[in-house]
Amino acid sequence: SDIKVHVGDITVELHNVSEEFARLVEEALRLGLNEEQAKEWAHKALH
């Protein structure tokens, strides 16, 4: 599904992702990663 993740003043739109993936992206953003890094990190975490 499509999910918007908000962290501080950052909003990341995720398309066709699981809630778990979105949660991992949100966690990575909170750790200070940028959007691209957060998506990559979440992807690796799920595989």
Results as ranks from 00 to 15, higher is better:
16 N>T: 06
12 V>E: 05
32 G>E: 01
42 A>G: 01
4 K>C: 06
24 L>V: 02
24 L>A: 08
36 E>G: 08
22 A>P: 01
45 A>G: 05
24 L>M: 08
18 S>Q: 06
34 N>T: 15
6 H>W: 01
29 L>E: 02
13 E>K: 10
33 L>T: 01
4 K>F: 04
7 V>C: 03
13 E>F: 01
10 I>D: 06
27 E>M: 13
26 E>L: 11
47 H>K: 13
3 I>H: 15
31 L>S: 13
18 S>C: 03
41 W>H: 14
19 E>I: 13
2 D>S: 13
38 A>F: 01
31 L>F: 10
29 L>H: 02
38 A>K: 00
4 K>I: 15
31 L>V: 05
8 G>A: 06
4 K>P: 08
25 V>I: 09
34 N>Y: 02
36 E>Y: 10
19 E>H: 13
41 W>I: 12
1 S>P: 11
36 E>N: 11
30 R>E: 08
34 N>V: 03
8 G>Y: 00
35 E>N: 03
16 N>I: 04
19 E>W: 10
42 A>R: 00
24 L>N: 02
46 L>A: 07
47 H>Y: 03
47 H>P: 04
13 E>M: 03
20 E>K: 10
19 E>K: 11
39 K>D: 03
27 E>D: 10
34 N>K: 05
16 N>P: 07
42 A>E: 00
3 I>Y: 11
8 G>M: 03
27 E>L: 14
6 H>N: 13
30 R>C: 07
1 S>R: 15
45 A>P: 00
22 A>I: 08
42 A>N: 00
15 H>A: 09
29 L>Q: 02
18 S>M: 06
41 W>Q: 12
33 L>F: 12
31 L>N: 12
19 E>M: 13
9 D>H: 12
37 Q>H: 06
39 K>E: 06
20 E>A: 13
21 F>D: 00
33 L>A: 04
27 E>A: 14
11 T>V: 15
14 L>S: 05
13 E>I: 15
10 I>H: 09
23 R>L: 10
33 L>G: 01
17 V>M: 08
9 D>E: 13
31 L>H: 11
1 S>D: 10
10 I>E: 07
39 K>R: 14
31 L>G: 08
18 S>L: 07
32 G>A: 01
42 A>Y: 01
47 H>L: 13
22 A>N: 04
34 N>M: 03
15 H>M: 08
26 E>D: 07
20 E>I: 12
22 A>E: 04
29 L>I: 08
30 R>W: 11
35 E>K: 08
33 L>C: 05
36 E>V: 12
16 N>S: 08
41 W>A: 15
45 A>C: 08
46 L>M: 14
38 A>P: 00
29 L>K: 04
30 R>N: 10
45 A>W: 11
32 G>P: 00
12 V>S: 05
11 T>G: 03
9 D>S: 14
8 G>W: 00
6 H>A: 15
26 E>R: 09
42 A>S: 01
17 V>P: 06
44 K>P: 00
12 V>T: 06
4 K>W: 02
25 V>M: 05
17 V>Y: 07
15 H>Y: 02
20 E>V: 11
11 T>A: 04
8 G>I: 04
22 A>C: 03
41 W>K: 13
14 L>P: 06
33 L>N: 02
8 G>F: 01
14 L>V: 06
6 H>R: 15
32 G>R: 01
21 F>I: 02
9 D>M: 11
43 H>Q: 12
10 I>W: 06
40 E>L: 13
28 A>G: 14
38 A>L: 01
43 H>F: 11
13 E>A: 09
24 L>S: 02
36 E>K: 12
46 L>C: 03
46 L>S: 05
20 E>Q: 14
8 G>L: 03
23 R>M: 11
5 V>M: 06
28 A>W: 02
30 R>G: 10
28 A>F: 09
14 L>E: 06
44 K>I: 07
2 D>R: 12
35 E>D: 05
24 L>C: 02
27 E>Y: 14
46 L>Q: 07
36 E>Q: 14
12 V>Y: 00
23 R>D: 04
38 A>C: 01
27 E>F: 14
8 G>S: 06
24 L>P: 00
22 A>F: 05
14 L>M: 08
43 H>S: 11
1 S>F: 14
27 E>C: 08
18 S>P: 06
11 T>K: 09
35 E>V: 13
47 H>T: 11
31 L>I: 10
41 W>D: 05
45 A>D: 02
30 R>H: 12
39 K>P: 05
14 L>C: 05
40 E>C: 03
38 A>Y: 00
41 W>G: 04
28 A>I: 01
39 K>W: 12
23 R>G: 05
21 F>K: 00
24 L>F: 10
16 N>E: 08
15 H>F: 04
26 E>S: 09
15 H>D: 05
28 A>Q: 02
40 E>W: 07
32 G>L: 01
10 I>F: 10
33 L>K: 04
36 E>R: 11
45 A>Y: 14
40 E>T: 04
25 V>G: 00
36 E>H: 12
32 G>D: 02
8 G>Q: 06
3 I>Q: 10
20 E>L: 13
14 L>R: 04
23 R>K: 14
33 L>S: 02
26 E>M: 11
29 L>Y: 03
2 D>G: 12
33 L>Y: 14
26 E>V: 10
44 K>F: 07
13 E>Q: 13
24 L>G: 02
47 H>V: 12
34 N>Q: 04
11 T>R: 04
35 E>Y: 10
38 A>E: 00
1 S>H: 15
12 V>P: 05
33 L>D: 01
3 I>A: 07
22 A>T: 05
46 L>E: 04
32 G>T: 01
39 K>M: 14
7 V>M: 07
41 W>C: 07
4 K>A: 13
30 R>Q: 11
24 L>E: 01
44 K>N: 15
18 S>Y: 05
12 V>W: 00
26 E>P: 00
15 H>L: 07
19 E>Q: 14
43 H>C: 12
18 S>F: 07
20 E>D: 13
6 H>P: 05
22 A>Q: 06
9 D>K: 10
7 V>Q: 07
21 F>C: 03
12 V>L: 06
25 V>F: 12
40 E>S: 08
40 E>K: 11
4 K>N: 12
13 E>G: 08
40 E>M: 09
37 Q>P: 01
35 E>Q: 08
15 H>G: 08
41 W>P: 00
36 E>T: 12
25 V>P: 00
45 A>V: 15
10 I>R: 08
40 E>D: 15
29 L>P: 00
29 L>T: 02
3 I>V: 13
1 S>Y: 09
43 H>L: 12
36 E>M: 13
20 E>R: 12
9 D>N: 14
44 K>M: 12
14 L>Y: 02
19 E>S: 11
17 V>K: 06
26 E>C: 09
47 H>W: 02
